[in-house]
Simulated scan of single mutants.
Amino acid sequence: MASIKSTPDTIDSAVRNQLIALLTGSNAHQPFEEAIHGLPAALRGIKPQKLPYSIWQLVDHIRIAQWDILEFSRNPAHQSPPWPSGYWSKEVAPINDQDWQQAVDQVRQDREAFLALINDPKRDLYEPFAHGDGQNLLREALLIADHTAYHVGEIIIIRRLLNAWPS
């Protein structure tokens, strides 16, 4: 069997492909879309006893954090919201189905925009941004994946507590 020589281009391509798979797949975790699929609207704003957030608050937090990371990655003038108040909805439930759908759609759209950054061969995955304190595109991709997977797990736990997760 012939071996393929690793070159900087093949390594870069492999890393980009793995990042895309991490952000869109479900190797070691459920994807965002699966965690919210089939969730009854009436359960979006329930905050189970002793838990700090509802599913709505988690979905909106994922949306805000991912948007912030995307904007930080592509716009040196971006100003992040204040922590923690700017990252968490005070509302336990979405006002209506439209607010829910807008949040879900923005999670998907911003993920696609971030994937476009990863797919852009002119963007160096490893070069620190001129702004910030050493962050690079690779780090931000891993941050989105890690953060989203963590909160997707919380969404699934809440769904299990509410008897709204398939066995």
Rank of each mutant, 00 (worst) to 15 (best):
L58H: 02
V59S: 08
V59T: 12
V59E: 03
V59Q: 04
H61L: 09
H61F: 09
I62Y: 01
I62V: 15
R63Y: 08
I64Y: 00
I64L: 10
A65R: 00
Q66A: 07
W67L: 13
D68C: 14
D68E: 13
I69C: 06
E71I: 01
E71C: 11
F72H: 10
S73H: 01
P76I: 09
P76N: 06
A77N: 13
A77C: 06
H78Y: 15
Q79S: 13
Q79Y: 04
Q79I: 13
Q79H: 10
S80D: 03
P81V: 10
P81T: 12
P82V: 10
W83S: 12
P84F: 06
P84V: 11
S85V: 03
Y87S: 06
W88N: 04
W88Y: 08
K90G: 12
K90P: 02
E91Q: 14
E91V: 02
A93R: 07
P94S: 12
I95D: 08
I95V: 14
I95T: 15
D97T: 15
Q98S: 13
D99N: 09
D99G: 03
W100F: 07
W100T: 04
W100I: 06
W100P: 02
Q101M: 11
Q101D: 14
Q101K: 09
A103T: 12
V104L: 11
D105M: 07
Q106E: 12
Q106C: 06
V107E: 02
V107K: 01
V107L: 04
Q109H: 13
Q109Y: 05
Q109L: 14
Q109I: 11
D110Y: 03
R111Y: 09
E112G: 05
E112N: 14
